Amino acid sequence: MFYKEVNEIDLGETSIANIFIDIFMPMADGLYVKVYLLGYKSACDSSFNPKFDNNSIAKNLNVPLSDVISAWKFWEGKKIVKMHKNEGYDDFDFSIEFLDLKRIYTENISVNTKSIKSNSDSIVQVGENENIRKMFNSINQTVGRYLDQGEKLSILEMMNKYNMSSDMIMCAYEHVKAKTGSSKPVKYIEGIIRNWYDANLYTPEEVKDSFAVRSERYMLYKTIFNELGFSRQPSRAEKQLIDEWFDKFNMDIELILEACSKSKNVSNPSVSYINGIIKSWNTKNIRNLDDLKISEESQKPKETSPKHVSTSSTNGDTYKKTKFHNFNETFTQYTSEELDEIIEKSQKEKFR
């Protein structure tokens, strides 16, 4: 039960339609509601300071002017205000037109407003689920603000559409925050969930394992590109070729690095060039360095025994021996000392 004290002192009042309190206020965080109310008060009170503007709201709430403009953009998105850019070079100088909420309610009562109201009720009902409540609280902490009603509805629809648990939704928000360092809209999160759904990932553990596989493959890309002397990241087409080496051809990383080493004498090495070598090896069922060694050994020409040189002529006659035929036999009859003595004696006789 709620009731208020009766007081005859008139300090002024601002009347606001219940449609704002019932329908639109739950969609926004506290700051956006404060901005709306302060602006609406100024619009309703003709005796209010005519110079009161967005800068005044920012100072009053002790927030940046950009936050005030963001609030008006939010309410404009809900179609209950219109922003009109004032003349001048100030990008933050806007006049705000408050639309008639009663007219909006009357025109949309048969479609939009009932839908919004029923959705708001459904959020309250779903919020009684401990896992859903825990999910929303976790997301609030991850993004650093409170989710509005529209975001909550989108998240619930996303869960039903892709049959994802609350743990997966929290996992997606945490992944995006860790990857980008900032919060992203629900549409961005839905893109992550859709990718996981297409990859048949339905639990945070499966997502974690998938990340581990991708991380390992990334290191393989990096190792191969380092061997090729590339300092850039592989393109999508290059990744597809490299993936084939591992997944389709079942090649060992050592064998792939061996293929890369063969491009050192090529002026413009490329992944396509290495792919030609890999394909050639694949046709020979070469999967590792041992296979390559066996293949290379089998291609070497076999050694043949030396041919016997016959001393006979073609007609069966024996060649006439000269003094050189007995050269080795004569030479091996002496020791090294005796040979030195013979050479020395020969030299003396020659120059006598």
Rank of each mutant, 00 (worst) to 15 (best):
K4N: 08
S15W: 06
P26A: 06
M27L: 11
A43T: 11
D45P: 00
S46Y: 06
N49D: 15
N55M: 02
K59S: 10
P64M: 00
A71M: 02
W75A: 07
G77N: 03
G77M: 02
I80Q: 01
K82T: 11
M83T: 05
D90A: 06
D91K: 06
D93Y: 05
R103W: 05
N108H: 10
S110T: 13
N112H: 04
E130N: 06
N131K: 12
R133S: 14
L147H: 07
Q149S: 13
E151Y: 01
Y162R: 06
M168N: 03
I169T: 05
M170A: 07
A172H: 05
E174S: 13
K179I: 07
K187S: 15
K187T: 15
K187N: 09
A199I: 05
L201P: 03
E206F: 05
E206D: 08
F211G: 00
S215E: 12
L220Q: 11
F225Y: 15
F225T: 06
Q233N: 12
A237N: 14
E238I: 10
I274H: 00
K293S: 09
I294F: 05
E296R: 13
E297W: 07
S298Q: 12
K323T: 14
E341G: 02
K350Y: 13
K350E: 07
K350S: 11
